[in-house]
């Protein structure tokens, strides 16, 4: 199997790519295929020169661009550079892939040790006492992120996700050609009750439990910037509180870490801006709808043969469960 799914084949290409930049006297070691994420392949490796290894992470795109709702790698890298320069906790950007690397689209950042599994963050005894800290830090990081001038990332405000968020989701859903009346119902409901969106800010776009690395002292870095765009900060707050990230603790509405009001107040204190409760709840419903469509997308990637995996097959059958949440929230039977 001479493609990048083969770890030996991929390792050799990474070795050549690193030596091109850091010289022939360095070696790579401890190569580990971490995840096949929603939009990328993540490979960790050590660059060894002398006795001190530097652990790096390659994020290689796996979604063909014509089907992808995600930012192209060069924009993701620019986003990372900008937020890193503004003191947002993210892995340090190291370099972007070039055509000569023969590794496709992607980039390399420093590795950060820690925990990412949401269920462990929510349920493990080790982290139970840290939930309040995670909640507080989430609010503070978001408040800081939302002050960054989005024009520093050219093209961010021109994305359809930025200018027409509901239209962008409908367009993505339409690409897959699967009839889902529950999702159509949500489109209609959301259009009917769409709030005024107010000021436009820089958004992470997928800020939630699962997209952060934490330690027992708190949040270390934010990951997965491929959904960054501009919009109302209520979109980000609503997404964080969407029911899909509570992983069995539906009472912990704010990202599985705590209750909404505590999170809203922490954000208000950190940002100096009021949280529009009603608008945020509209964005929670929008978020669950969006999550259902992302699951259809992953299932489509599996069925089309682009990215075969049991996890992506499971996403197809997960869609109905998310639709169930969606309808129950609209009916006000679920919070």
């Amino acid at each position: 199997m001479q493609n990048d799914d083969n770890i030996e084949y991929l390792s050799e290409k990474i070795r050549v790519c690193i030596k091109r930049r850091f010289g022939d006297d360095c070696e790579i070691a401890d190569i580990e295929l971490a995840t096949l994420g929603g939009s990328n392949r993540t490979v960790l490796f050590d660059v060894v020169r002398g006795s001190y290894p530097l652990r790096l992470v390659l994020r290689q795109e796996t979604v063909p661009s014509e089907y992808s709702p995600f930012l192209p790698s060069d924009m993701q890298y620019r986003v990372l550079e900008v937020v890193y320069e503004h003191g947002i906790p993210v892995p340090r950007p190291v370099f972007e892939l070039e055509p000569a690397d023969n590794l496709g689209q992607g980039y390399v950042v420093t590795a950060v040790p820690g925990e990412t599994l949401p269920k462990r963050l929510i349920n493990s005894a080790e982290y139970v006492t840290m939930r309040a800290r995670f909640l507080q830090q989430s609010a503070e990081i978001l408040a800081k992120l939302h002050t960054i001038d989005h024009v520093l990332v050219p093209g961010l405000s021109a994305l359809q996700e930025s200018s027409d968020p509901l239209g962008a989701q409908i367009a993505l859903y339409d690409r897959y050609g699967e009839p889902h009346p529950a999702i159509e119902f949500a489109f209609r409901y959301l259009a009917k009750y769409e709030p005024e969106h107010g000021a436009i800010n820089f958004l992470h776009g997928d800020f939630r439990n699962g997209n952060m690395i934490v330690g027992t002292e708190g949040i270390r870095v934010l990951l997965d910037w491929e959904c960054a765009h501009t919009g109302s900060v209520m979109e980000e707050i609503g997404w964080f509180c969407a029911r899909s990230w509570r992983f069995g603790r539906v009472d912990l509405a704010a990202g599985g870490f705590g209750d909404r009001e505590t999170f809203y107040r922490a954000y208000e204190k950190a940002s100096g801006n009021l949280v529009d409760r009603e608008s945020s709840r509209w964005w929670e419903i929008f978020g669950v709808m969006r999550w259902a469509i992302y699951n259809i997308m992953q299932s489509h990637g599996h069925l089309s043969g682009e990215r075969r995996s049991p996890a992506f097959a499971a996403c197809g059958r997960n869609t109905g469960i998310i639709e169930y949440d969606l309808l129950k929230i609209i009916a006000k039977e679920f919070d």
């Binding site: 009346p181 529950a182 489109f187 409901y189 309808l327």
Partner: peptide
Amino acid sequence: CASIRRGDQDGNLDRLLILLTSHVSKK
């Protein structure tokens, strides 16, 4: 789906919500 998208069911949304919940529950 096309009917909901066109807005043909806007007068029936409460009833439709109940029926769709039942449809999704089957899945």
